[in-house]
Design a protein around this nucleic acid. Structure first.
Length: 361
DNA sequence: AACGGAGACAACCGCCGAGGC
DNA sequence: GGCCTCGGCGGTTGTCTCCGT
């Protein structure tokens, strides 16, 4: 019997997700936790296949995700980890907890790989390191000659490779103190801004989703005034009100403690937070009050329920996310630096091309 | 202003391994 | 042990936006 098709259900929706679908999915995961993606379909009525739901969650909706604006530091880490691990994006992503494998993969394919290639053209490199990148398969520079060497040699070489990569990575890490994580080529105003923004972990982003949705919806712009409302588990209601001019307006976001806990909304204030964001025609946001041509409200009722008891799984993941945003990188850095210090003299470094990546930025 | 190319990114596809029956 | 389902992963594609001409 053949392998079942990717999405066996006829009528399964494909293409970009709408904010409404996002909210339904988030609502379901809030209630049941991630996993059991099959059940998402049956329980929510979403016309999406399970894989699509999982991907949407892991790559886009999951709390703690940082999107866009890769820093120099992250770029270096990705380059070094790619040299060390190959195209194992999930493994690489585990060292960059706020980034998804898809994001890293995209960044590599659209930016870093080209940068390396350009460097190669400029330079005079004939290492097989480049082949590794082009094939997108191999793990280290030495692996090309693996078949010719004995197992013991291979192991030693592998260890050496690993150490080399670790050293290079520690170099990158030590070079990039948090205050130093800028891209030299860019003018100051274009430097990536390190914000705490995480997509869909911020109510503003949910509002933005809604705004885009409204903007793209011809139905909403045609009528004089429409209200879209979604209720999530009786705790979070989202309403969108549009008038005849949806391309301009104000996004009002009101969150409470409950939403904070759900979406990791960053606010030092425990009381309800209200944010007003104006949207210009280009979809750009700014903060001052504006017309109310289009108003979106994301409200959470004060008494957010015992999220803990019902959603232990989800909460656990959130907790993990929060922890991993801090801990693993620190441990990694410590591990790398300790290890590098302990072994600085001992290895014969095999033709890793890592050194050439060090001056990429 | 219109057009085309490049870049960026979300999403899809197919393969694979793990685990349950 | 074989079959089946499910979830994870990496490669690839499609689409949108930006920018230069």
């Amino acid at each position: 019997m053949g392998r079942p098709p990717y999405c066996e259900k006829i009528g399964v929706k494909k293409g970009p997700w709408t904010p409404e679908e996002d909210i339904i999915l988030v609502s379901y995961i809030q209630e049941h936790g991630p996993g059991n993606w099959r059940n998402v379909l049956t329980n929510t009525g979403l016309l999406r296949c399970s894989k699509s739901c999982r991907l949407r969650w892991t790559n886009y909706l999951r709390p703690g995700i940082k999107r866009g604006n890769f820093t120099e530091h992250e770029g270096k880490m990705i380059i070094h980890l790619q040299a060390l691990l190959g195209n194992r994006w999930a493994a690489i992503a585990s060292y960059l907890p706020q980034r998804t494998d898809n994001d890293i993969k995209n960044y590599w394919n659209t930016y870093l790989k080209k940068k390396l290639n350009n460097k190669k053209v400029e330079g005079h490199d004939d290492h097989d390191h480049e082949n590794n990148h082009q094939k997108g398969k191999s793990t280290s520079s030495s692996s090309s000659s693996q078949s010719k060497i004995s197992k013991g040699q291979w192991e030693r070489r592998l260890q050496s490779d690993i150490h080399t990569a670790k050293q290079a990575l520690s170099e990158a890490l030590s070079l990039d103190t948090p205050s130093n994580r800028t891209i030299p080529d860019l003018p100051e105003e274009q430097q990536p801004v390190q914000t705490s923004t995480t997509y869909a972990s911020s109510a503003v982003n949910i509002a933005k989703l809604l705004q885009n949705w409204m903007k793209n919806s011809p139905k909403l712009s045609s009528s004089s005034s429409k209200i879209t409302q979604m209720s999530l588990n009786n705790n979070l209601s989202i309403s969108a009100v549009s008038s005849s001019s949806p391309s301009e307006g104000t996004v009002n976001v009101v969150t409470g403690q409950g939403l904070d806990s759900l979406f990791s909304f960053n606010s030092s204030n425990n009381s309800d937070v209200s944010q007003s964001v104006s949207v210009d025609e280009g979809g750009n946001f700014s903060t001052p009050e504006n017309t109310n041509a289009a108003i979106f409200q994301v409200e959470s009722k004060p008494n957010f329920p015992d999220f803990k008891a019902e959603n232990g799984k989800f909460q656990e993941e959130n907790k993990q996310n929060l922890e991993t945003q801090q801990v693993p990188l620190t441990l990694l850095e410590k591990w790398l630096l300790d290890d590098a210090n302990a072994q600085t003299q001992e290895d014969q470094l095999i033709g890793m091309a890592l050194s050439e990546t060090a001056d990429l930025f």
